[in-house]
Measured scan of single mutants.
Amino acid sequence: MAEQVALSRTQVCGILREELFQGDAFHQSDTHIFIIMGASGDLAKKKIYPTIWWLFRDGLLPENTFIVGYARSRLTVADIRKQSEPFFKATPEEKLKLEDFFARNSYVAGQYDDAASYQRLNSHMNALHLGSQANRLFYLALPPTVYEAVTKNIHESCMSQIGWNRIIVEKPFGRDLQSSDRLSNHISSLFREDQIYRIDHYLGKEMVQNLMVLRFANRIFGPIWNRDNIACVILTFKEPFGTEGRGGYFDEFGIIRDVMQNHLLQMLCLVAMEKPASTNSDDVRDEKVKVLKCISEVQANNVVLGQYVGNPDGEGEATKGYLDDPTVPRGSTTATFAAVVLYVENERWDGVPFILRCGKALNERKAEVRLQFHDVAGDIFHQQCKRNELVIRVQPNEAVYTKMMTKKPGMFFNPEESELDLTYGNRYKNVKLPDAYERLILDVFCGSQMHFVRSDELREAWRIFTPLLHQIELEKPKPIPYIYGSRGPTEADELMKRVGFQYEGTYKWVNP
């Protein structure tokens, strides 16, 4: 592979701008107003304001973009700056750019259920340069409990009458099928589907988006991507930290609602779906819905739930269990780990287990898709061969690698495990991989909904998990304890083995 010439960040961002501006969906010269509902909250200060700053800094926003914060707290732009700027990672050389960014910011205080507050917000936006005809993007960085009041008031008082209007809704989209349907029906009564952007930030990850290209742009994968060759698929999300004093919020939802029903299920769809007619948003989402419709409700015998306990040999936070978090209700049975087996009941995947695993306070930070292939028929190497695996590593250190057998150097035919490896950090030294939120917010500006969740996708996802969630809430089974920093409950490994996964433990990928 030829040595790549190092590029400056300015040059890299210039390439990104060229890609972005050559499309006809990006209205570079139009006025846009980006409204952050819930501007005083954690999500706004840690993710949304920093993301908008990065896009502005790199010249990736339309030229005439204004940012308006809205929340109940009586704040000023200076207050917003004070709480969000520490997350910007701005350099001293960017000081003038930073001043320009905050000059485009404003803030309006108001209630979430008060019509007069929204009329005041609308008047404020109209007073901005060309504000009355601007395109408006409303980001709901809010708890779902206020979605209905907020969307109703936005629709009645704050819509642009000339430009387009788009609304970005953060997960969780309800707690179960019934609450999700209620919320979807409410929002759909106010906005068209092409105006609604239900954001799952995992769909903005580079390697998640790469799944489609790997599958449908490489001839070698087509013939082997089926039940005849693939023994099982494992989708993993692991965090090495616990709730760390923020367990009160987590306890309301648990690990299945927080990660599995959305992030992991979306990745499953991209692995299992048929080739779409095109890369058009609805063509892709149509195929994802077909996959979900082929999955039956989760069966309790295919589920393992766990909850982390303190590690007596650990240090600091590792010595504390979930129930030691003062914000967690006493005696909570909320799971911090889950392993679930699903089956896609169609011709391509009949009988292939899709194993979804996620948890907190585990032994490493990792998100990946792992396809394990069947054993080689007619073994001539005296059971020395391990199964081939194709691994798409989402985070950290984005990579695609194939675990395969090669001859060990020497005189004899002794096979050993090795890999074919594409590590993004080595291959793409001159490429700026956008943060997931950067990519998705740019998608909203461009009107691309491919990486957002459609209402029928959402409904099918909740259909699969709601009976299990209701059973857990009714019966309150005690989750299996696992030690902070471990791989999780051993019962999860036993479940995976029972459905056909072979864990060798003899080879570990190392970032080159």
Score class of each variant (00 low, 15 high):
F221V: 09
R198M: 06
R182G: 14
K95P: 03
F221N: 08
I256D: 05
I154L: 15
S29I: 10
I162D: 14
A90D: 06
P240H: 11
F88W: 05
Q111W: 10
R175C: 12
Y249M: 02
E206Q: 09
F173K: 04
A134T: 15
N153S: 13
N229S: 09
P172H: 00
D194W: 09
E170C: 03
V68F: 07
R227M: 09
R136S: 06
L75C: 10
D200A: 01
F253Y: 13
I230V: 13
Y118E: 00
K97R: 14
F56M: 07
L235F: 11
E93S: 11
A231K: 14
E85D: 07
Y118R: 00
Y249L: 00
P144Y: 00
L43S: 04
N210F: 04
D42T: 00
N122K: 12
F34Q: 05
Q161R: 07
F216G: 00
S123H: 13
P50Y: 00
I256T: 09
Y139E: 06
I15V: 13
K47M: 04
V77W: 09
N126A: 14
F216N: 01
A2W: 08
I199S: 03
Y197D: 00
R81N: 07
N218P: 04
L20A: 15
D194G: 10
M159H: 13
L203R: 00
G110R: 01
A231Q: 14
F250C: 01
D79I: 06
I199Y: 05
I255F: 05
V233C: 10
S188F: 04
D30L: 13
K97F: 07
I80T: 05
K205M: 03
R192Q: 10
A127Q: 15
F173P: 02
I199F: 06
G41N: 03
Q83L: 10
S160N: 14
R57A: 08
F87T: 07
V208G: 01
E85H: 07
K45E: 05
T236F: 05
I15A: 06
A78V: 10
I154D: 02
P240F: 10
Y112Q: 02
G110Y: 00
I35W: 01
S117Q: 09
L128N: 08
T51M: 11
F88T: 06
R219M: 08
F56W: 14
E94T: 07
S73L: 04
L128E: 08
L16V: 10
L55Q: 10
H155D: 11
D194V: 09
K45Q: 11
G245Q: 09
G247N: 05
G59M: 07
G174W: 01
N218L: 01
K45D: 02
P223Q: 11
E99Y: 07
V169E: 00
I52M: 09
F66Y: 15
R120P: 10
L211T: 06
K82N: 13
G254N: 09
H129C: 14
E193N: 01
A25E: 15
F102D: 03
D228E: 15
Q111P: 10
T10G: 08
I256W: 01
T91R: 15
H124S: 09
F101N: 00
T76A: 10
D79C: 08
Q161M: 12
L128V: 12
F66S: 08
N218T: 03
M212P: 05
G247K: 05
V146T: 12
A25Q: 10
E156I: 13
F250N: 01
D24P: 02
A44C: 07
L55D: 05
G59C: 06
F237Y: 00
N229K: 00
P172Q: 02
S132Q: 15
G38P: 02
L128Q: 13
N105D: 00
S106Q: 10
L16P: 07
I187G: 00
A116E: 14
N229W: 03
R219E: 04
F241R: 00
F221G: 00
I187D: 00
F241T: 06
R246Q: 03
Y70F: 12
N135Y: 06
R227Y: 09
I35Q: 04
I154E: 03
I52A: 10
K171P: 03
R81P: 04
R72G: 02
G174R: 03
D114L: 10
L214C: 07
Y49A: 05
N226C: 09
E85A: 12
R81Q: 08
R182Y: 13
A115Y: 12
F216E: 01
G163S: 08
S184C: 10
L142H: 03
S179G: 09
F221D: 00
S8T: 15
N126V: 11
P92E: 12
L55W: 01
G247W: 05
G204F: 00
I80H: 07
L55Y: 05
S160V: 12
A217K: 03
L60P: 01
M125N: 08
A78N: 15
